[in-house]
Amino acid sequence: MSATAVAESFRAVLGHFCSGVVIVTACDAAGTPTGMTVGSFTSISLEPPLVGFYAAHTSSTLPGILAAERFCANVLAAEQHELARAFAARGADRFAGVDWAPGPNGAPRLTGAHAWIDCRVAERRAIGDHDLVVGAVEALAAPGGSEPLVFHRARFHGLRG
């Protein structure tokens, strides 16, 4: 397959891969929250506990997360698909009407999330047209009582539907 053919098929084919949906949040020094939806969240290491996510070099949100040096990965629950859309929108007040509370590291924990993972930024590395942000896990929990939100073929789904 030629490089052009691969590039043309890349998004369509990888859309067949199911991913979880996470909103990465942080607060700046003044306490102003910021956040973005990511579909590229992953566990990296058990010892030490590390997770990571990718953000485009062009992200206007990533600099605020990096400056905060701490973030919360909010794993969304199946019913939070509208929240995922809101945090993916550009130029909007993403926290308008959103219920959240600061975790011990200061990053917003979104109410109703399927799980949350508080992290310290451990590393940032440019890879292709994205940055990999590695987080050292400081605290985490899965409160229970919900199913996760997943993204498949450009649509949000619960595990059962």
Rank of each mutant, 00 (worst) to 15 (best):
F87I: 11
V24P: 04
A7W: 02
I127T: 07
S40G: 09
V134I: 13
G39H: 02
C27D: 00
G106C: 03
E123R: 06
V137I: 11
A101N: 08
T58Q: 15
A154M: 11
E8Y: 11
H152M: 13
F151A: 00
A92I: 15
M1Y: 02
F41Q: 11
D28N: 11
A113D: 07
E8G: 14
P48S: 07
E69N: 07
S59M: 14
W100D: 11
E123Y: 05
A113S: 14
T37C: 06
G135F: 09
V98P: 06
F17Y: 14
A142R: 15
A88I: 03
G31F: 10
R120K: 05
N74C: 01
D129R: 07
R11I: 03
T42E: 09
G91F: 08
I65M: 07
A7S: 15
E8C: 13
R11D: 14
D93W: 15
P49G: 04
C18H: 09
A126Q: 14
V51H: 03
T4Q: 12
L76M: 10
W100Y: 15
N105S: 12
S59C: 14
R85S: 12
Q80A: 05
F87P: 03
I127Y: 02
V24G: 01
L76C: 11
A7D: 14
T61Y: 03
